[in-house]
Each structure stands twice: as structure tokens, then as C-alpha cells.
Design a protein around this nucleic acid. Sequence first.
DNA 1: GGAATTATATTAGTAATTAATATAAGTTTC
DNA 2: GAAACTTATATTAATTACTAATATAATTCC
Lengths: 150, 150
Amino acid sequence: MKPNHNQPDMNVADFAWAFEELTRLFIRLPSIEKHSFTTLSVLHTLSRKSPMRLTELTANEQVTQSAITQLVTRLERDGLVQRKPDPKDGRVVQVHLIEQGRAIIDSRRLERIARISALLEGLTPEEQQAIGLAVPALKRLAERGTESRP
Amino acid sequence: MKPNHNQPDMNVADFAWAFEELTRLFIRLPSIEKHSFTTLSVLHTLSRKSPMRLTELTANEQVTQSAITQLVTRLERDGLVQRKPDPKDGRVVQVHLIEQGRAIIDSRRLERIARISALLEGLTPEEQQAIGLAVPALKRLAERGTESRP
DNA sequence: GGAATTATATTAGTAATTAATATAAGTTTC
DNA sequence: GAAACTTATATTAATTACTAATATAATTCC
């Protein structure tokens, strides 16, 4: 909480606030198909890395391993993912994201990009430029957060 | 989807990506007390405006009015909110966020600020400055999104 | 004053989640 | 190389969260 180089602390709170509000806008994007929050989260996780074993998925989401087993069972029944055994380790089940599952994540991603674009158009060119210049730093910030996760 | 002034489209996708990744980092912040996603969302909504009537809350969250009635009942039982009748309109119930409920949101907010601070410290001064300069524009972006919601 | 509307509550059924336990494959140790 | 331990997934039973449909009651609008 100590001041951070020459950036006053106030900025962090404002940044967090903006982030919080934007999150609210996108988290509950109404989809045509209804999926629970955890379902979407698992699909999203798999969209970043597939296949993954159940244990990895369990570690990523804040639910029990049993919930993941059942969720993957439902996802497999609905044709969004596919279970495959690991030839190296007979205990392991690899969960693969397949086409129909990936389509769900992709469409939500496009929807999100479209809404951000619409919001950006309402800003002044200077504001747009300020955000544009910050994007590489924001990417780095996000990458750091992702990596630092155990 | 057409190019937007002199900012190439690529930026929007990158911005959305960074945003998406950062969201993942914070959405599942493990709390000491366990509350469902919708519970936290309702508390957060109330932290921005309290009191609110059930109908308003229903419109904000993507759940049914029945779910809100039941959720508010649980929140009231747990001492996080308080129902009060509206003297002007006998049909209305005003839901007030009270101390213990506000504390939950405040503590999560502080946790979020602390984590963002920690991430920012890993960036170069130039990157930090780029984000700092974009914060006012990000705030405006978030405000626009908030207002434009019905 | 009766009809339509608005705001909340109730009920009954379904889906999602957890805690606890089971099964089975791998690893280690002596 | 077998007993003890650890790791990975599955199963079961109970609980919680959610929806759809319907009820109740106050308000508004001719």
C-alpha cells in the first residue's frame, strides 16, 4: 500500500474501480444457450489450454474435484468436450475441448469485443489513444497475473 | 467492426483479451466466507446503490425474480441486508445493505486493489505510466457502460 | 368501481454443488 | 517385490440454488 514510484495510489483504486465496473458489464452476458457460470469458466480454461486433466481443472476452478467430474460428464454428454485416456498414465483422463465447445467461447469473445468497440466509440480520440497506448502494458499485466498462478 | 478512427482493430481484441484474463484472476478470489457468485453480485450492486427494490435487483442480475426473493431472504437471515417497506407504495420492499454486508464487499475490494498493486509493481515504470495515463479514459469507459444499461 | 398493471411471495420441481467415501493406478521403501 | 503411501478419478447422498408457474396484494387507469 506504500506509494509506488511516482504514481499516486489513487490511480490503483480508480483502475480497480473501472475494472470492477467493466467486469460487471461482461460477466453476465446473456447467451442464447444457457450455461452455468462454472461451465463457462471450465470451457474458457480449456480454450486456453486443451487437453487438461481433471486435477488441473479442479485446481483452476474453485470447486471440488467431484463437481468437475460431474461437470465434465455433462459437457461430454452435450458434445462440448471429450474425455481421452492418457497412454502414459492409466489413472489420468485428458479432457479435450472440441468444436462445439470452442464455438461457445468464441462467440462470447466476439460479443465482448463488439461491446467494447461500441463503448470505445463513445470516447474522445484522446481517450481512445490513451487506452490504445496502455494496451501493451495491460497485456503484460494480465500475463504476469496468469503466470504467477500456481 | 469497421476500423475505428486511427486505432487499428487489433487493439480492441488485445484489450478484450487482457480484460478477460484479468477478470479470471479476480472473479474467483477465494474469500474466507463462502458466498455464491449471485450473492456477491447482489451485494456489490447494493454497494453502489442502496436501498433498492427487488424489481431493480432482478433487472440487474440475470436471474428470476423468485431467485432474488429467496436470495434476499437468505441475506436478511444472515444479517447482510435488511428489508423495509416503502411508505409511498405498499407493494414495494426496499432492500438496504447493512454494515455486515458492506464489510464483505469492502474487504474484497481491498483485496483486489492489493493484488492489482502487486501486479503493477512487476511492470516497468513506462508501462505503469501508460496505464496510469489511461485510467481516466478507462473510468469514462466504465461509466458509459454503466449508464447505458437499461 | 372494475380491469389491467406492478411488486413481491410461495410452491414444487430440477440442476448444481459439496462432503465423504470408494476404486484403482502409480510410487516408494525396505 | 510386496506393503504402505500417494495420486487421479468416480460414486453416493444430502444440500443449496435456481426456474417456471401461480398467488396475493397494492396501485393505476379508464
